[in-house]
Amino acid sequence: MAELVASNLSVAAGGRTILAEASVTLRQGELVALLGPNGAGKTTLARAMLGVETQTGSSRLDGMAITSLSPIDRARMIAYLPQIRPLAWPATVRDVVALGRYAHGAAIGRLTGRDAEAVDGALSACDLQPLANRSTDTLSGGELARVHLARAFAAGTPLMIADEPVAALDPRHQFQTMSLLRRYVDDGSGALVILHDIALAARFADRLVWMKDGRILADGPVSETLTEARLEEVYGIHARIIESADGPAIIVRSPVAQDRP
């Protein structure tokens, strides 16, 4: 079982602490949602766990310091989906998904055996087969998000870290993307997903990690950590949580009045 254990990760930039002693674990079979307001340090935590950010503390993959692994070895264990940026070239959908096999030595355009299988599987899982030969600059935002997700799936890693994979997607595509991630986890992998939609996180995640000002304030199952008091503490909002058969709904009533010094 692959396990990514971050302990006491801290990151400072420009004399400011942007991540303070964060400890969190990602295991296979778990979908963990990382929540928090803008600037809480979610992306920094994800990057520090991957060993990209200069940090103190440790992030260990199956007991090995993540920074001691080569990029290839790390990429074979953890897929990373950063916030989606435009592609440099209008490559085809299949070629972009094939890049997910980079760590396995695949050259795009010349896929063989297991690489071709993994790419085809990922394309099918994300309903992209009909678009496989389309150029990515002709896709809608929802389709492009699926392409990136398929690229991460194609890597066939036991773990994944995804940074706002549903940003800028409409509700239907948000739901679809989260369902794909849920299926990935139900098939035995583990995913850490940065989200802004609390209800979506509560609907799909096994565990919620709440961050504010570079610190992790709470980490636990949805039923234990999603409270109105927590929403006030983390996001500074008065909100009501309404339970329903399809997961909780969050209704924001007003922002908390800020104490001005």
Partner: peptide
């Protein structure tokens, strides 16, 4: 040259898929 393909995704994602 394979690394040049990887950079199509941008530097951060290219690093993510295993590019040094």
């Amino acid at each position: 040259k394979r690394g040049l393909s990887a950079l199509t995704l941008g530097e951060e994602a290219a690093h993510g898929i295993g590019l040094d």
